[in-house]
Nucleic acid binder design. Structure first.
Lengths: 354, 354
DNA sequence: GTTAGCACTCGTCGCGCTAGAGTGCTAACC
DNA sequence: GGTTAGCACTCTAGCGCGACGAGTGCTAAC
């Protein structure tokens, strides 16, 4: 069988086995792996010298590197990538773990906001990395109900329940001569006119109202203004909330013993734009997707990997769940866990928006 | 003037000035401070030898320490404590900073949840440490309004607006033969009976209903059950949410260059019990209060200080704002900023719950 | 194609050394 | 009596050095 030394291509089974062994050993120990430890621990049936030859090939192909001449090998991002491709399809979660996760989901209060937190913390616990989850966000929202209730002190709360679940609340100032009864009347009118309406429809009614009612400060108009703005913001927002849990787990990895690298990761994570962009790239792909080290756009994220999956139904409500951890993570475990949890979230969304 | 070498007591003005200078220098540089640098930088009008004598006294009194014989001095927690006592009353924020903060508060949407985030991030920005804020939580809550709206798929959303502002939302399963009209009827009945009621009152109505209506699965009963539970949980919860912002700032401090210490701090911070207990201790004290290093109960928090203040009106709604940072923090700046921000939050609460 | 043998490389660890910072003490000074 | 100059002393950080060991790459034999 011809060897392809220079061009990356399908590897021989033995080379692949060795790459796999190196990755698994490196993931477990965080130390460069030598030829000797490989043959003793992994029963490869060949001598260290042979392994060394193969390792040299793998290095030439870009799958391995070593920090200095006399050190063992460690996988490159390309090596991880190859490994991930080879296991991605097969990876299913052990039934025991499935049961444990399902059990955790059974425990939680039947309130939607809890699920994302739960998904994040479940992922964090099961993978010993950071769990990430966003709420299922619909493409565009509709009004389900509006409430306008007096606070007693020249302010009133406007509570907007969206058909897709989320509840928005803002304060409004009211005139002293607006009686609670007035508020209720306006509330009834709002509900009658707006229930089931989309942002665009609210906006067009607002335009009508403005034309019809010259006194621009009318309570009704101002309420519709606020509602319109809320709905517009909701539709425009890329990623509204990102729950992350278990960032502590990432801190425990030896590669982040000095907090400098970690700080840079956190600072990227903090601004939601990064995750927002990432999620948009994701929404076209179907299954679990891994972004390994330098595959991440930002310089700062080159030492971490993200394993993400979209859940929900395209065109309707979708969200993202996933895991962030050091590049040296147990991909088989992480990918299968993310896949399983996103499946669970799918069930929940189906059940809710069916 | 008699010196009190052994007993800690009121210090001579010169000693206090030197302590202050050491603390300010140490806060700025994070390096142990020597006698020489002190006299050159702080124009003390005495020679290094004299400063050394005073430093020896201060060390004997427990206000200073040095990491090893030939190193400069650094303040102990007791030293910081003395310093804080001496500046605490006087500390007011520079007008420029006041203006900047006030301006930030002016920018935000008029929605209560935003304020806590804003307070936390303002504090973080102004002090280069982590900002912490909790929502203003009333002692006990009352119902303002209940909405029961169908989701279409055997589930309904129960939206509970509390008189104090917060909105709670849970999902309920409904029977297939519960028409939307039924939901609305139940909703009207709930509002008529529960508006303005407290958790206890809801509970007693629930008991009545259970006696009166044998079929325990009636939609009304189940709704009241959920409401009762939500309100009870709300009243029982010590600290419902803690927003913290700018933990990155803390990571930048050189004392946390190795992430181990930081990890332990974060892990304590993560479980809300710790902050909950702390906040309860706080609620008796009036003004800004500092917990310096080892004054914190947990071993893990011995390298950080918390500067906290209660805002709101006792007996009505109260919350906490504050700052977490390394023990070596600029207390004058931090204390005055926390005091100012808590004052702003007071205004907001007054305006809202007046 | 595989393997044993071996020279070579390079990072880690422990050691001793030096330079420098800063102290504490003593004796002189005002 | 408080203050100060002078000085010996202490301790750390930093550097160079050599021993050690892990691991490689190459070569020649199987």
């Amino acid at each position: 069988m011809a060897r392809r030394k220079d061009r990356p291509g399908p590897l021989e089974p033995r080379s692949e086995a060795i790459l796999r062994a190196i990755i698994e050993e490196y993931v477990a120990t965080a130390q460069p792996v030598g030829s000797m430890t490989l043959v003793t621990k992994y029963r490869l049936g060949v001598s260290p010298a042979t392994v060394r030859n193969v390792m040299a090939e793998l290095e030439a192909a870009g799958y391995l590197g070593h920090p200095h001449t006399s050190a063992g090998r460690q996988p490159t991002d390309a090596g991880y990538r190859l490994y991930v491709e080879s296991i991605a399809d097969a990876a299913t979660l052990a039934p025991v773990e499935q049961l444990m996760i399902r059990h955790q989901f059974g425990q939680v209060e039947f309130a939607s906001e809890q699920w994302f937190r739960l998904a994040a913390s479940t992922l964090a616990g099961a993978t010993h990395a950071a769990g990430i989850a966003t709420p299922a966000k619909p493409q565009s929202c509709r009004v389900r109900r509006v409430d306008l209730v007096s606070n007693g002190t020249r302010t009133a709360s406007l509570v907007l329940v969206l058909a897709e679940g989320p509840v928005k609340q803002v304060l409004m100032t009211v005139e002293t001569d607006d009686e609670p009864a007035d508020l209720e009347a306006v509330g009834r009118r709002l509900n009658a006119r707006l229930a089931g309406r989309s942002a665009v429809e609210v906006e067009s009614w607002l335009a009508e109202l403005r034309d019809a009612l010259p006194p621009a400060d009318s309570l009704l108009v101002r309420a519709v203004e606020r509602i319109s703005r809320l709905m517009h913001d909701f539709d425009a927002a890329g990623v509204e909330d990102v729950f992350s849990e278990g960032l502590l787990n990432v801190m425990e990895a030896p590669e982040f013993a000095r907090s400098e690298k970690l700080r840079r990761v956190f600072s990227v994570l903090q601004d939601r734009n990064y995750l927002g962009e990432l999620f948009q790239r994701l929404s076209r792909e179907g299954d679990v997707h891994a972004f390994i080290g330098s595959e991440n756009d930002h310089e700062e994220m080159h030492d971490v990997s993200l394993v993400l999956a979209v859940y929900g139904r395209m065109g309707r409500a979708t969200g993202v769940v996933g895991v962030l951890g050091p590049t040296r993570m147990a991909y088989a475990q992480v990918i299968s866990t993310v896949r399983y949890v996103s499946g669970l979230m799918n069930e929940l969304v189906d059940h809710l928006y069916a």
